[in-house]
């Protein structure tokens, strides 16, 4: 496929918003959606175009997403953002202190600095301030939501005693624990699957049949 500007493929300017991009993508796709079932070269071309549109949309969407974070900062904020990303927290804090504007973005960056320092209470306060100033900014509201939902996230370690895991326990906490019966004998491991198959093969052969023909 020739490499073309994804925005050009979709017939839009590169300064569109994400929802506008989606509209353009739907429009372009609609043009070829029905043609692809036509016989001969016409149908094939429609299929190719659809693939191209699909790829272009994905790429353009990715570009918009990254640009959203970058272009949103004015220069001083961009610099602070870079410092945070590099883990130079003290310098970032210094820059924040020097900055004269106290807009939503400032609160957001301050929140990120505090989060890196593990000062979670202050981090949340600043994030709230950012959301208060710009309630429609998805970046801020999403971050705040993530913050508040972190506690509800499920624990991921399977190797711990079931009875103690936050999601474990339940009505009969010992039921699933491998300490009952001294081992995990019912597990569906590859080893167990193979040995069960072999066993079934033996049984079949006793009865005159055969399950696995090679043994």
């Amino acid at each position: 496929m020739p490499i073309r500007d994804p925005f050009e493929v979709l017939g839009v300017d590169s300064s569109v918003t994400q929802s506008e991009l989606y509209e353009a993508y739907k429009r372009e796709r609609g043009k070829y959606a029905d043609k692809r079932f036509l016989p001969g070269a016409e149908g094939e071309e429609a299929c190719e175009r659809l693939d191209e549109i699909e790829a272009a949309y994905r790429e353009a969407d990715e570009i918009l997403k990254t640009r959203f974070y970058v272009s949103n900062f004015d220069n001083s904020h961009k610099e602070i953002d870079d410092l945070i990303r590099q883990g130079r927290i003290d310098e970032a804090q210094q820059k924040l202190d020097e900055s004269m504007t106290r807009d939503a973005e400032w609160h957001f960056l301050q929140s990120m600095v505090f989060y890196r320092r593990k000062w979670y209470n202050d981090a949340r306060e600043h994030l709230r301030a950012a959301v208060e100033k710009e309630p429609n900014n998805v970046k801020y509201t999403d971050a705040l939501k993530n913050f508040d939902e972190k506690m509800k996230r499920e624990s991921g370690a399977a190797s711990r005693t079931q009875a103690y895991r936050p999601d474990g326990g339940g009505e009969r906490p010992y039921r699933n624990d491998n300490y009952v019966g001294g081992g995990n004998s019912n597990a569906c491991t590859p080893c167990n699957v193979c040995s069960t198959l072999l066993c079934a093969d033996c049984c079949c052969e006793c009865m005159g049949g055969d399950l696995i023909s090679c043994c």
């Binding site: 624990s155 991921g156 370690a157 190797s159 711990r160 005693t161 103690y164 895991r165 936050p166």
Partner: peptide, 22 residues
């Protein structure tokens, strides 16, 4: 819990998990 989940725990896991999780 997040940090503990990522840790390798082999010695006295039960007692430790009980304290951390519950």
């Amino acid at each position: 819990i997040e940090a503990y989940d990522k840790m390798e725990v082999t010695v006295s896991e039960g007692a430790l998990s009980n304290i951390i999780y519950r």
